[in-house]
Structures are given as C-alpha cells and as structure tokens.
Design a protein around this nucleic acid. Sequence first.
DNA 1: CTTTTATATAGATTTATTTTCTATTTTTAA
DNA 2: TTAAAAATAGAAAATAAATCTATATAAAAG
Lengths: 152, 152
Amino acid sequence: MTLDAIDKKLLFLLQSDSKKTTKELSLKLNLSVTAVYERIKKLEREGIIDKYVVLVNRSKVEKGFVVFCHLKLIQHTKEFLTKFESEVIQLKEVLECHHVSGDYDYILKIVVKDMEAYREFLVTKLTTLQHIGSTHSTFMISEVKNTTVVDI
Amino acid sequence: MTLDAIDKKLLFLLQSDSKKTTKELSLKLNLSVTAVYERIKKLEREGIIDKYVVLVNRSKVEKGFVVFCHLKLIQHTKEFLTKFESEVIQLKEVLECHHVSGDYDYILKIVVKDMEAYREFLVTKLTTLQHIGSTHSTFMISEVKNTTVVDI
DNA sequence: CTTTTATATAGATTTATTTTCTATTTTTAA
DNA sequence: TTAAAAATAGAAAATAAATCTATATAAAAG
C-alpha cells in the first residue's frame, strides 16, 4: 500500500506514544475518530504496524550494561551460519544479532547487569556456541540516542 | 523498587504485547484486574515502564537498509564530544548512537531505503558534522534477531 | 462527461476496557 | 500480638474501542 501524509504522521505519533486515544489522534490529524480508527486497522492488517509494546528503562532494572560484540565464525558454510544463528537467538541477553558484511560476520548487541555478568555470559553462554572463531567486545560508555521511531 | 516474580512476568508480557487487556493479563497472572492495574500504574510511576510504542515493520516502509557506522572524532575534548552528540541526535536516519570504548568513539545504527540513500546520507549529512575524524560503515546482510524485550 | 463502483469519512450506537471506589485480606513492622 | 501499611478483590462509574448506517469523495467504466 502507499502511505499518504496522514498515514505517515499517524505512524509517527503511534511510534512515539501508542497510548494516545483515537480521539486525541483525530484532533492532531483533523479527521474523525472513525477515519483514524480505520487507518490504524489498515496499517495493522498490512503488517506495517508490526506490534504494540512496552519499552522498559533498562537502567532501572539492572540491565544498564550494554556491549557490542563483533564476531567471526570459523567457516562460512550455510550449515555453520544456520546452526550459529539458531543458537544465538535463544540467548535472552542478546537483543540484536545482525549478519553483516566486512571484517567480521555478526554484530551482537548484548544487555546485562554489569561487567561481571558479561564475563559470565561470555564464558558460559556465548563462547560455548558452535563454530565461533573469534569475538571482540566493545563497551558502551553512554547512550547518546536510542529510538525505535523510523522516519517514514 | 524491588520487582517480584509477578512484576517480572507482567513486564515480559507487556514488552511482548502492550495491547493485552488487564483482563487477559489477570488470567495469565492469576490476579484480579485491579491488582494487575495497580501493578502497571506503579511500574509506570517508577519509570520502569518508560513508554508505550508501536513498532513498524521497516521492510514494508522502504527502510530496510541498515548500516552500522563506526566513527572516530578528531579530538576527545568534552567540547567536541558534546557538539558532535547534539548534532547527531538530530539526524532521523540515526536510530542509535552509542559512545563506546575501544578502537573508535561511537557506534551508530542507521536506517535508510537503500545504498543510494545511504550514500546521500553519508555525504550530505553525517560527514558534514563537525569534528569527525573517520567513519567505517558495515552493512547488514540479514537481521538474525532484533527485540526490545529485556529479560528481567 | 456521466454513471457505476469502490474507498474513505462522519456521527451515532453498542460493546468492551479502564479507572475509581469501597471493603477485605495479606504483609510488614512496632 | 497488635497496629499500620500495602496489596488485592469485586462492583460501579467513566472512558475508549469497535461496530453500524449513512454520506461524501475518489477512481474506473461506459
């Protein structure tokens, strides 16, 4: 489907705060409640709106330690990639895993309590996965920006 | 505040789907609607629940091209860091910017339409920021895992 | 250019959910 | 062991979502 300016503004508003009522949205968009409601339902049906979620303040739940781990496999056969990927997605400390081009194969974003928890994770979980060649950890000093809002 | 097992399960459920009604949650948690409601309100007051948002399927809105950009500044004075950070957070293509330890100063996660859009972004926006020393772009081949759910 | 069809919108109504209120129960601390 | 505080339950009130019917707007066909 093609998104018009109203759809884009609607998506911006919902990406920023999905608790807004259709009434509030209708005022900002100069539409009726029903028109807004139907547009939202359409965006949901099309899968453009993927899901509604709560975002947690990580620093308030002892998960303020963020690590980027750059990882190489020992081989790059489909079998090895698939095996590694199926295992890494199981690890709850790993919020993101991206297969990437360049000097290494994967970039992982890992969230734990502190350095000690990371050491434990690395030794008992990550490096026990099969086919891992090497890992290189980069630690977050501060979070300058972190948003889920995509500009459409 | 200290979170008990019910709070943690509640946060897991809401992080996965914030559209669940308090009725549905109450059934899963074996609590009354009011008890669930009060727990949610407390988590909001404490700032543990940061916000409610819609997550958009990027590939359906022509923002499926993800780049990790590793960046160095020419100097590391507070002035230079602050200036750079205040500018980079304005860029809507930059979803994440992390100040990190190690070989480079920042890791950026950038979302655009395609390689051509990235080239345009790099040339007209990112590299025009002040105090940038060097950039190194790594392109996402596939998204193995990408979740906002923090295991508490 | 007009008619037909489909799509989008508005307002009213119904249904569902959230929020508030009061009463108990449970937990914590004195 | 008792008093105070916190958490929970159920009912009532307030609010919002979802549905329905009618109208308007836009796209396609004759």
